[in-house]
């Protein structure tokens, strides 16, 4: 019961914060709402007993990516753009596509999962405790490791290659080799900015 309540609470927080990420005017607030949505989704994952994934969520998304986002948002030097004009231009088509997909999801998903699993209501389903499983089991991180290094070896290597590329690429893009052309940040201008004048989209 309590687990269910928590589940609903965190889902509500998740949905609200992701909506606020899109709709809020100041992009700093957007990033902070994004962090909130990451945190709430990782707590949902905790409730579903996926500890490893949820911790990874917190470490990577909140610890690294959101901080990176904050840096980027503070660095960009974009002035205020009139919101109403742009949104009116794109509103009809965007909302049409969004509503079409929403209706599609609402039509498809409930019709697929409405049926009760017949195994659950039959007498074949007894809730006995499997003591062997309880005593001798892998932790989640162990089983993830087992899978990564045996069955999904080549995928592991491939993602390593992607990470290598992701380090080479930005270094290549920002490494200054010829002096005259590349743009640089002016440090004083950068440091003298305040949070409420950064970026209004």
């Amino acid at each position: 019961m309590i687990v269910n309540l928590f589940f609903y609470f965190f889902s509500f927080v998740l949905i609200t914060s992701s909506l606020m990420t899109v709709f809020s005017q100041n992009s700093i607030y957007s990033v902070l709402f994004l962090v909130l949505s990451f945190v709430s989704s990782s707590s949902i994952l905790f409730l579903l007993e996926c500890e490893y994934v949820s911790l990874i969520f917190i470490i990577i998304y909140v610890g690294a990516i959101a901080v990176l986002f904050l840096f980027v948002v503070m660095m960009l030097d974009i002035k205020t753009i009139s919101l109403v004009k742009d949104s009116l231009k794109y509103f009809p088509f965007g909302s049409f596509i969004g509503i079409a997909f929403l209706i599609e999801i609402l039509l498809v998903v409930p019709s697929t999962f409405e049926a009760i699993n017949p195994y659950n209501i039959s007498f074949l389903c007894n809730f006995h405790l499997d003591w062997f499983n309880k005593l001798d089991y892998f932790t989640e991180i162990m089983s993830v490791g087992h899978l990564l290094y045996t069955d999904y070896l080549i995928q592991f290597l491939l993602s390593g290659n992607i990470l290598l590329l992701a380090t080479i690429g930005p270094v290549t893009l920002v490494l200054i080799r010829s002096i005259k052309t590349t743009k640089k940040q002016i440090t004083f201008k950068q440091l003298s900015r305040t949070y409420n004048s950064v970026l209004y989209i």
């Binding site: 999904y152 080549i154 995928q155 491939l158 993602s159 290659n161 992607i162 590329l165 992701a166 690429g169 290549t172 893009l173």
Partner: peptide, 17 residues
């Protein structure tokens, strides 16, 4: 599907750069 996704990512990430 996982291999396909990773391979597509590898390819397109280098294309972006």
């Amino acid at each position: 599907l996982i291999t396909a996704y990773l391979a597509i990512e590898l390819q397109s990430l280098s294309f972006y750069i």
